[in-house]
């Protein structure tokens, strides 16, 4: 649990983070979005005290984050940034081992952890461990950056536009991998982005920042149905709303009884993907299959259209 209470950061006269309070549940993904310069990075960096707040408190599992020296706090909190920041003079394995080494883990434990993480990120330890960062592709560098942030098994992972430098296809994969790994380690993730699509893709809860203030802190669905301010509404994009609403929910919750012709759709896909499939196949309904392959009903254009409609 992370409790951010009335946190403010001033540079001179301007408050770049202005009286922000957020409570973040453990084992969830919170995404902070907002335009450039709205104070997202500053807010994130106050959690691991790369920036000291002007006023307010931040508690991690009830403990004030100022109760231990900054460097010790940071060894307990994962931190991944845009452009990965890998140490160019150290191998991939040495990069990942950074925090465990600082913590004085035994050699064998470090090696095992490095191997585990490389495998988890689909990088062969024997091949990639001894390489230097410049011998990796952009996507691989980014994965190593996240692996390094997770090496000491932190409960909290802070990410500042971690996928900003990736092309769209690798980016989508990196986002999926992040969610899988977040579930695997049960990490609490706080991720900063200016990309609303990414926010909806990843978030359990979204915090929208504007000029240093959090203007709305809500689940994606709540935010779509009831945007707190015109700014939030414009950030979501009026023409995107019905699709984002469908993207949040799986096909499973839109299944209707009955049967339909055509190729079955998996119940685990999002309703947006089902809509795309319906439109593309030119049918008004398609059968739905559960993960085992059994047909459990149908999904229809009409049904999805109702679900995509906003509140009247």
């Amino acid at each position: 649990m992370i409790e951010i209470k009335n946190i403010t950061k001033r540079y001179g006269e301007t408050a770049v983070v202005d009286d922000v309070s957020l409570t973040i549940a453990p084992r969830t993904v919170t995404v902070v979005v907002g335009t450039s310069g709205s104070g997202k990075t500053t807010l994130l960096r106050m959690i691991n005290r790369l920036v000291e707040p002007t006023s307010g408190t931040i508690r991690l599992d009830g403990e004030d984050n100022r109760s231990l020296p900054g460097y010790e706090l940071r060894r307990r909190i994962g931190y991944a940034i845009q452009g990965h920041g890998l140490f160019p003079h150290r191998t991939v394995a040495q990069n990942i081992a950074t925090v465990p080494t600082l913590l004085g883990w035994e050699r064998a434990r470090i090696d095992a952890k490095v191997d585990e993480l490389l495998q988890l990120f689909q990088l062969d330890p024997a091949d990639f461990g001894p390489r230097f960062p410049h011998e990796l592709s952009g996507g691989q560098q980014q994965r190593v950056g996240v692996a390094r942030a997770l090496a000491a098994e932190p409960k909290v992972l802070l990410m500042d536009e971690p996928f900003g430098a990736l092309d769209p296809i690798i980016r989508a994969k990196a986002q999926d991998d992040l969610l899988a790994i977040q579930k695997h380690f049960e990490t609490t993730v706080i991720l900063v982005t200016h990309d609303m699509e990414e926010a909806f893709q990843l978030a359990d809860r979204i915090a929208v920042m504007d000029k240093g203030k959090v203007v709305q802190y809500a689940t994606p669905a709540e935010m779509l149905i009831k945007p707190a301010t015109p700014f939030v509404e414009s950030l979501i994009g009026v023409s995107e709303r019905p699709y984002r609403l469908l993207a949040i929910e799986p096909v499973l919750s839109a299944v209707e009884p009955g049967s339909a012709d055509g190729t079955a759709i998996s119940s685990t896909l999002s309703q947006r993907e089902a809509l795309a499939e319906l439109l593309w196949s030119g049918r008004s309904a398609l059968p739905v299959a559960d993960p085992a392959g059994a047909i459990i009903g149908k999904v229809s254009l009409e049904g999805l259209a109702k679900r995509a409609a906003g509140p009247v």
Binding site: Y71, R76, F87, T98, V99
Partner: peptide, 15 residues
């Protein structure tokens, strides 16, 4: 020095 590398060094908890 590359700013992102220095940021990562601080973020990792190096003194």
């Amino acid at each position: 020095l590359p700013p992102s590398v220095m940021e990562a060094a601080r973020g990792a908890g190096m003194t």
